[in-house]
């Protein structure tokens, strides 16, 4: 294949890449929101909150994302009729929510107990201590594992091809089988994934560095 043809094909991937980005972005957004909520539930002192959180986390982590996606798109058909892209976003969000909840829980629990005691002894309430003292430090600690999780989510968005979302992988497979260009089309998809994961890595690293300001020693 000459370079001009390659470029021609390459250009047709851009809308598919945009779809991949959208699914990933909104999936992560849902995942982070669910993650914060379930992490706080998981560490609370009332069983009424911890039990549902534990249940959610173990069910989601114990079943494949592909199955969850199929369940939402095909399985729920008699209850709600969801479109392909919303189904993919919800599946990706719910799935990542469980992992992100555990990331946040670990980060929150890794903050030294003395921090809470210092806040409390200033007269702060439990909620104030969480918001002002614990969470800002926990977020910082959660960034490396979160960045990792975001990259996993980006790659996992390829599973949306199973329900017919026109994202990178489906697009490349369709072009490949229509033109007998398996190697070429899959390689183009791989290049797109690599570019996007590299950008994600760069962004999380930069955020990590920025938030490290307070750690610099003399």
């Amino acid at each position: 294949m000459d370079f001009a043809t390659f470029l021609e094909y390459f250009r047709t991937f851009i809308p598919a890449a945009w779809t991949t980005l959208q699914i990933t972005f909104f999936g992560i957004l849902v995942g982070v929101l669910l993650g914060i909520i379930f992490a706080l539930m998981r560490i609370s002192k009332t069983k009424f909150l911890t039990l549902p959180a534990k249940l959610y986390i173990s069910i989601i982590r114990g079943t494949p994302l592909l199955l969850q996606l199929l369940l939402i798109y095909f399985g729920l058909v008699n209850i709600v009729r969801l479109d392909r892209i919303p189904s993919a976003i919800i599946a990706l969000g719910i799935h990542n929510g469980a992992y992100i909840a555990e990331i946040f829980r670990g980060a929150i629990q890794s903050i030294d107990r003395g921090q809470k005691e210092a806040g409390i002894s200033l007269g702060m309430t439990g909620g104030q201590v969480m918001k002002r003292i614990i969470l800002p430090q926990a977020f910082k600690r959660a960034i490396p594992p979160l960045g990792n999780q975001f990259i996993i989510a980006l790659k996992d968005s390829s599973l949306a091809s199973a329900v017919g979302v026109q994202e990178l992988l489906l697009h490349s497979r369709q072009l490949a089988s229509a033109n007998y260009l398996m190697m070429e089309m899959l390689t183009i998809a791989a290049i797109f994934y690599l570019i996007m994961t590299s950008i994600l890595t760069f962004l999380t690293n930069r955020l990590e560095r920025r938030l490290k300001v307070s750690d610099h020693r003399v």
């Binding site: 003395g114 921090q115 005691e117 806040g119 002894s121 430090q137 307070s214």
Partner: peptide, 12 residues
């Protein structure tokens, strides 16, 4: 007011 052995200043 309370002062702790390990200071417990807020590092952020």
């Amino acid at each position: 007011g309370m002062v702790f052995q390990h200071f417990n200043l807020f590092p952020h």
